[in-house]
């Protein structure tokens, strides 16, 4: 546990000192969303209808964008091998790295999401559910993405390959995330899709560290 918190602190410190990553991801997220009113036309009704889905898809792509750096830098400078050899179980260390990734890229997305909802003319009743759905969904994205990031370590064209592997697995989170927002906008009960998102998160939390750790072990073998 100690080494996990130490790793988490190291990751956060690295992210803070280098800056960059979180800000870039948020800027990408905002830019993608801003493209939609320009692309489909600025009519408020249409934007309000597709807003939830647009924000979710943009969040998915933004999470994708930073994913390939999750293990790659550690793999390049060799510290990943030290983590594999460390006495602490690799699954816990993976979880710490994923937590750091979510704190630096997932959390900022949730914070700016109400602003984007405003830009897309979403009705205010949906803001809370949108943030809640993103809060339950983006950790799953980080967890699933960790498997893909570990699998593509050292691959040719790793970034493109990573999106091919991971985006299909993101689909369940996308479906239930959007249906939660839609339910809130239509004054329906948004609890069931949120509960399913929570269930997906628990499932990912239980399974993904194992798969990602197995993938890292075979990459550093």
């Amino acid at each position: 546990m100690n080494s996990a918190t130490a790793l988490l602190r190291r990751e956060l410190r690295l992210a803070f000192r280098q800056g960059g990553d979180s800000l870039l991801v948020v800027m990408f997220f905002v830019l993608v969303v801003v493209l939609f009113p320009l692309g489909v036309g600025p009519e408020p009704g249409i934007l309000a209808r597709i807003g939830g889905g647009v924000i979710w898809v943009a969040a998915l792509l933004a999470a994708m964008l930073s994913m390939d750096r999750l293990f790659q830098t550690d793999y390049d400078d060799g510290s990943l091998e030290l983590l594999v050899l460390a006495p602490a179980p690799l699954e816990v260390l993976v979880l710490a790295k994923v937590a750091a990734h979510w704190l630096t890229t997932g959390l900022p997305l949730i914070i700016v999401s109400p602003l984007l909802a405003l830009l897309l003319n979403l009705s205010p009743s949906g803001y809370g559910v949108l943030a809640a759905a993103l809060a339950l969904g983006t950790p799953s994205l980080s967890l699933i993405g960790a498997i893909g990031a570990a699998l593509t370590l050292g691959a040719r064209r790793g970034g493109v390959l990573l999106s091919l592997l991971v985006l299909p697995l993101f689909i369940p989170a996308l479906i239930f995330g959007v249906s939660a927002v839609d339910a809130a906008l239509l004054d329906l009960n948004s609890r069931p899709p949120l509960l399913i998102l929570g269930a997906l998160l628990l499932l990912a939390l239980a399974l993904c560290p194992w798969a990602a750790a197995a993938a890292i072990r075979q990459a550093t073998e």
Binding site: A155, R156, R157, L161, A215
Partner: peptide, 29 residues
């Protein structure tokens, strides 16, 4: 897409043994 991802991952490494192992993990996921 999982089938396509498996085949792409299998051939994505210079070291074929590495591709085989990575693709196997993906198949299980």
């Amino acid at each position: 897409f999982l089938y396509l991802g498996y085949m792409a991952l299998y051939n994505a490494f210079d070291d074929q043994a590495r591709g085989a192992r990575a693709a196997s993990v993906l198949a299980l996921v």
